[in-house]
């Protein structure tokens, strides 16, 4: 029995080696450069919008950054709806996932996808299938960090 499971483990290991040898690899360098360029472009656009609201419109820095988020989320949702954002994502990878626009894309995409299953159990239930984990662990860790900060201040 033991030799049987040992043989199987060996077989699996051998096959994994064969697959690794023959499988095409992702082009890491190209991916990193594209992600940097597109991600940088999105962030530069965000900075431009912030400066516009902060200095031209005289919003103040806090309100300007909120207005920037609103603009970027709107743009991303619009591009997702027009079927453009997935093409940007195909090109840029993490470059368009990491900024706030990627988060908006991950909410709008399921909203569009599950519209046919109805507004309640379709859109309502599936809206956060992708963004949900980010929200759960983002908010969860902010609570923990907040508690640590609170006790550090008390002490």
């Amino acid at each position: 029995m033991e030799t049987k499971s040992h043989n199987r483990a060996q077989q699996i290991e051998r096959y994994a080696g064969l697959v690794a040898r023959l499988a095409p690899k992702s082009d890491m360098a190209k991916g990193v450069v594209r992600a940097f360029l597109v991600g940088g472009l999105i962030c530069t656009l965000g900075q431009g919008i912030t400066d516009f609201f902060a200095y031209k419109m005289e919003f103040g820095t806090q309100a300007a950054s909120t207005a920037t988020s609103i603009c970027l989320i709107f743009l991303s949702a619009l591009l997702t709806g027009l079927g453009v954002y997935d093409r940007i994502g195909k090109f840029a990878g993490a470059g368009s996932i990491v900024p706030i626009t990627g988060f908006a894309n991950s909410v709008v995409a399921p909203a569009m996808e599950f519209r046919r299953e109805g507004l309640v159990m379709g859109v309502g239930a599936k809206l956060f299938t992708l963004a949900g984990p980010v929200l759960v662990y983002g908010i969860g860790s902010s609570v923990i960090v907040g508690l640590i900060a609170f006790f550090m201040e008390v002490m």
Binding site: D86, G89, K90, G93, S96, I97, G102, V108, A109, M112
Partner: peptide, 11 residues
Amino acid sequence: TPLELGTQRTP
């Protein structure tokens, strides 16, 4: 994943 999600497919 949903069709409009901007992800890359693996090789």
